[in-house]
Design a protein around this nucleic acid. Structure first.
Length: 492
RNA sequence: CGGGAUGUAGCGCAGCCCGGUAGCGCGCUUCGUUCGGGACGAAGAGGCCGCAGGUUCGAAUCCUGUCAUCCCGACCA
């Protein structure tokens, strides 16, 4: 069968690609490193977006939109920022094409259309946004400024992977300005909390909140907070970041406000972002050898109904009942699809919706109609049961809740058993090459040690956990004193 | 940008070593039988063999170049 997928244990990369491609989420595109997000994948993103957008609005944010193009001189203004992004920018240098006189039917860049100043396709929007904020902020009464943008960005990465790292990707980026450092820091941590809430409670992926080391910090930030998730191959994935930008961008773009004492002060900033990469996290955290598994709260299809019939007469009866069920389920807000297409038989449909990760499947046949029941199968445990059609909607509602909880608990159990405390360098390497996952170890706090560990093992410090307890110890690599354990892992 | 591999029908592939005018499975179309875990039979449609040169009577096959994609690194969310 063409829809067979590679086993997770046999070839993890191939398994992941199979889930993305055959699960119908996305496809490779004609453009280098870019992908086409197909309707099923986009529906998932829309559901994620809707929930997040509501959360942002509930915390006082509003949406706006800024240009795709960033003039080179804007990007240059914040030094660390410029340095960090310079090597992965798509640059617009001309604005016109013309017919190639030496090559009939071909186009060439018109050399007369060269731009005075190059335009950078935004890799992120701090520069263009802070240039606007300069004009928007005059007084303490204009603060805080809490804005979010849903956009696409482009980062010209060496190597791309579906969802995890594509040349162009979709995301949201929040950019806020505050009167004080305390307030900005509070916002940074608050939004990290929003992300953790979203990823854990909607995507059913457990995360660890933490702070990045200076080496791993966002270009231009004073501090980078992150949530880290663990994939089923033992590698970590950064699922979202929230940056405390200090006054770096305010100074670079000269954004000052007049405080209550009539004095000019630079504002304090944050930025935070979450992208379609999360879909990659979802796939890798939950998928199995049968395909995707969608958390009910954001699943594009929560329930699929598959009719089983012989002949048109049976089909008609089942159609009637199925459409009733669809109405009942829709009435209580359940996203349901009745697949009555006749080009695939039941067995094929079962496999197909398992591959797509639809949480609940109802199989409705003549036998069921007689007994006023339906066969209900759940994707996570693969359990099947025959349940009464009476009160089906509330039964399924409860089932979806249980499904959501079960997914999270399963992922958390995996994650928890893959955080290993190690106290020696030998042990560190042994765990990393064996069961992998997060390694909780003491670190002397220096970038040199961090760098050496990375070179020797490829493991990086994913974060310094926010809830970590103080504990004196010695660095697992250098033997120097340390105050807290940090989390190491191989990562995406 | 380094290492490896692959470009042949919508998808997955065989054929290439040893040149002779393209094949298999799935899918698609039509008809019939089917339908509770990826149905079966019959008849069909569909291919500048990635692109450009070269060798040859003749190239999917040999040679040169080139482009693209995937995997593994370095880089990153």
């Amino acid at each position: 069968m063409s829809k067979e997928i590679t086993s997770r244990d046999k070839d993890y990369s191939q398994w992941y690609n199979d889930l993305v491609l055959k699960g119908g989420l996305a496809d490779y595109s004609a453009v280098r490193g870019c992908m086409v997000i197909k309707p099923y994948g986009y529906a998932l993103w829309e559901n994620m977006r809707d929930v997040l957008d509501r959360m942002f609005k509930d915390t006082g944010h509003v949406n706006a939109y800024f240009p795709l193009f960033v003039p080179r001189t804007f990007l240059e203004k914040e030094e660390g920022h410029a340095e960090g992004f310079a090597k992965e920018c798509a640059v617009v240098t001309h604005y016109r094409l013309k017919a190639d006189p030496n090559n009939k039917g071909k186009l060439m860049v018109d050399p007369d259309s060269k731009l005075e100043e190059e335009l950078i396709v935004r890799p992120t929007s701090e520069a263009i946004i802070w240039n606007a904020y300069r004009d928007w902020i005059n007084s303490y009464r204009d603060l805080p400024l809490l804005i979010n943008q849903w956009a696409n960005v482009v980062r010209w990465e060496m190597r791309t992977r579906l969802f995890l790292r594509t040349t162009e990707f979709l995301w949201q980026e929040g950019h806020t300005a505050h009167a004080t450092a305390e307030e900005a820091l509070e916002e940074t941590v608050k939004m990290l909390g929003v992300y953790a809430d979203f990823v854990e409670n909607y995507m059913a992926v457990p995360v660890i909140k933490g702070v990045k080391t200076p080496n791993e910090r966002f270009a231009g930030a004073v501090d980078t907070y992150c949530i880290e998730a663990l994939m089923q191959d033992g590698k970590a994935l950064q699922a979202g970041t929230s940056h405390f930008l200090g006054q770096n961008f305010a100074k670079a773009f000269d954004v000052k406000y007049l405080n209550r004492d009539n004095q000019q002060e630079y504002v304090w900033a944050t930025s935070w972002g979450m992208s379609t990469r999360l879909i990659g996290a979802l796939i890798m955290a939950h998928g199995d050898d049968q395909g995707l598994i969608m958390p009910p709260r954001i699943a594009p299809i929560q329930v699929v109904i598959v009719p089983i019939y012989k002949g048109d007469e049976q089909k008609k009866l089942i159609d009637t009942k199925a459409n009733e069920l669809v109405q009942q389920l829709k009435a209580v807000g359940i996203r349901v699809k009745y697949d009555d297409s006749d080009n695939a038989r039941p067995g094929w449909k079962f496999a197909e919706y398992e591959l797509k990760g639809v949480p609940v499947r109802l199989a409705l046949g003549a036998r069921d109609l007689e007994k006023n029941v339906v066969e209900i199968a759940r994707r996570d445990t693969k359990e099947k049961a025959s349940v009464s059609l009476d009160g089906l909607a509330s039964h399924i509602g409860a089932l979806l809740e249980d499904f959501q909880k079960n997914m999270f608990e399963k992922a958390r159990a995996y994650r928890d058993t893959h955080i290993t405390e190690v106290n020696s360098w030998e042990e560190f390497k042994e765990v990393l090459n064996g069961k992998a996952g997060f390694i909780s170890a003491h670190w002397d706090g220096t970038g040199e040690t961090e760098e050496k560990i990375k070179q020797e093992t490829k493991a990086t410090i994913r974060c310094i956990p926010l809830n970590g307890k103080e504990e004196t110890g010695t660095c697992v690599y250098s033997g120097k004193p340390s105050q807290q354990r940090v989390l190491f892992a191989l990562s995406y």
